[in-house]
């Protein structure tokens, strides 16, 4: 087995998620991503089980691995109890570890995901937080969200939540010592390391593409967050 294939097969998601795919295509038939993108979980699983190093490297650099929605609908129906969606998790992990994710438009989006979700978790203790959601980047929220945001304290008070309070309850402030524990877990288990890699590989790519790279919602963030070549379908 090649070196990269070897790394892929060490991932527990591949170990537990793949046993002799029979190429029946049931996963592709049920897959919501296959109904929308040019995507087939059957093909992905077949490429992985071929253990062909060059094809696997291509896959790690491809757009395809980023199309899956991780809904795991494929798990219920696979006659072999495989989970293509879990194999996708392993492929995406490795693609980021090796820096291959910046080779595809969809892969480059990981920088935006890291800065939105990753930073909300470490700064707020929530994976998303109302204070950070605006209809500018989220027009789908609709006018009701603008009204909610304009009156956020009064509405929360009306609903009897703990918004911005240091008690138990809905939308309470998470205490600094709890955020510190999360931070420590991130250090010990490799999440900080992955965050650093996402930032570093993205920075290199931004240099190649001559796009300004800083932090937060910079030019590169907006580029990866909004670009769509229209050829994914």
């Amino acid at each position: 087995m090649g070196k990269i294939t070897d790394l892929l097969f060490k991932d527990i998601h591949v170990e537990d998620g793949l046993s002799a795919c029979i190429n029946c295509g049931t996963c592709t038939a049920i897959c919501p991503a296959a109904g929308f993108y040019h995507y087939s979980p059957r093909e992905i699983v077949d490429t992985v089980q071929s253990k062909n190093e060059l094809k696997i490297i291509d896959l790690l650099k491809s757009e395809q691995i980023w199309y899956c929605g991780e809904c795991m609908s494929c798990k219920t129906r696979c006659p072999r109890n495989n989970t293509p969606g879990m194999i996708i998790i392993a492929l995406r992990s490795l693609s980021q570890e090796l820096g291959y994710f910046t080779e595809s438009e969809k892969g480059r989006q990981q920088l935006a995901v890291k800065r939105i979700i990753g930073e909300a978790i470490l700064n707020k203790g929530y994976c998303v937080h109302i204070d950070q959601i605006e209809t500018g980047l989220h027009p789908e929220q609709g006018p009701v969200w603008d009204w909610f945001k304009e009156n956020v304290e009064q509405v929360h008070e009306r609903l009897g939540t703990a918004y911005k309070k240091n008690t138990a309850g809905v939308m309470r402030n998470i205490a600094q010592e709890d955020l510190d524990e999360l931070d420590k877990i991130f250090e010990v288990t490799g999440a900080h390391d992955r965050f650093r890699k996402i930032e570093e590989f993205s920075k290199q790519k931004a240099r190649d593409l001559r796009i300004e790279f800083d932090k937060g919602i910079d030019e590169y963030f907006l580029h990866v967050y909004q670009s769509n070549c229209g050829k994914h379908y």
Partner: peptide, 27 residues
């Protein structure tokens, strides 16, 4: 029991692949 020390489980980060599974399992 509603524990104020409880935080996100990091689930959205795990399924958008920015954190390793070990991180999520430890949280």
């Amino acid at each position: 029991f509603d524990d104020p020390r409880h935080t996100t489980c990091t689930g959205i980060a795990y399924h958008s692949d920015i954190v390793p599974f070990d991180t999520t399992m430890t949280v």
